[in-house]
């Protein structure tokens, strides 16, 4: 138990954290929020920036592209990660350890280096493309297109999804299947009635994290296309540090659109993983 005086002193010691967090996380967000209502290159107050964004085909396309690539890469990532995570869960010993370490490394292998690695592998003169070409196979694959981006995004989504799904799968206990079997349920029945319902919060939560991750990322696409592919994050970046046209107020409004989507998704995630957390505690 703590005396009131010690409590006050402790509160004072929280100040540095609060200050830095405010200055570098909260204040910028507030600033962006306020700036987003200064339209016409910051000249007048109002929702002009937002009107402009939603009227402009160009910005609508950026939003649409971002949503599309995030959604597809999350689905692909999830679908490929699920069997991998399940197999990993079923393995044991050194191989499992090794695979986990590998997944951890790959999960951190994103952004500019990843874009370069893909250019070398699948770019116009990429080694895999050239190799296939010599075998007489013409993929007609363009790394710098939406499809290329979805492929690269999926690459960094898979290890992330595996790392996020594994704890949920470890929560599925063998005894449950054994108990279900003794009660007369077959394998399929077990998955429908017990396995999937238990995994569902984990699957949805992971999916949402993947989606948010893809929506907010920029480095990979930026490095790959030099800022030419039309994505929300790239539009924002070009409006504040591009070479041609700077409009931080418009960038702020675009940012708020992105933040709105991410907040929605993050809150949904918190809400989804709550029951899972309770279950973990009850064990």
């Amino acid at each position: 138990m703590v005396s009131r005086q010690a409590g006050k002193k402790a509160l004072f010691l929280l100040m540095p954290f609060i200050l830095v967090f405010f200055l570098f996380q909260v204040l910028p967000l507030i600033w962006v929020f306020v700036d987003s209502f200064k339209s016409n290159l910051g000249e007048e107050w109002g929702i002009g920036n937002y009107e402009y964004i939603f009227e402009s085909r160009y910005f609508r396309q950026a939003l649409f592209n971002s949503l599309k690539i995030s959604l597809y890469s999350s689905i692909v990532g999830m679908l490929l990660a699920l069997p991998c995570a399940w197999s990993l869960h079923r393995l044991s010993g050194r191989l499992k350890e090794l695979t986990l370490t590998f997944a951890n490394m790959i999960a951190n292998f994103s952004g500019v280096p990843l874009a370069f690695a893909f250019v070398i592998l699948l770019g116009a003169n990429g080694c895999l493309i050239v190799l296939l070409d010599q075998l007489g196979i013409q993929l007609g694959f363009n790394l710098y297109s939406a499809l290329g981006l979805i492929l690269i995004y999926s690459y960094f989504q898979i290890p992330l999804a595996i790392l996020l799904m594994l704890p949920a799968m470890e929560g599925l206990r063998d005894e449950w299947q054994e108990a279900a079997c003794l009660l007369g349920a077959g394998k399929i029945r077990y998955w429908i009635s017990i396995g999937l319902p238990v995994l569902m919060p984990g699957i949805l939560g992971t999916f949402i994290i993947l989606f948010a991750n893809a929506m907010g990322t920029m480095a990979t696409a930026f490095a790959l296309t030099g800022g030419n592919y039309n994505l929300l994050t790239i539009r924002i970046s070009n409006l504040i540090s591009g070479d041609i046209f700077l409009d931080p107020w418009l960038a702020s409004a675009l940012s708020m659109v992105l933040v709105f989507i991410l907040m929605l998704v993050t809150l949904a995630n918190e809400w989804l993983i709550k029951p899972g957390r309770l279950r973990a505690k009850a064990k």
Partner: peptide, 16 residues
Amino acid sequence: LPFAVPPVVSSVGLLQ
């Protein structure tokens, strides 16, 4: 909050 506010958004504010 850092998950909901990606670096590119924070950068807009920090630059200002």
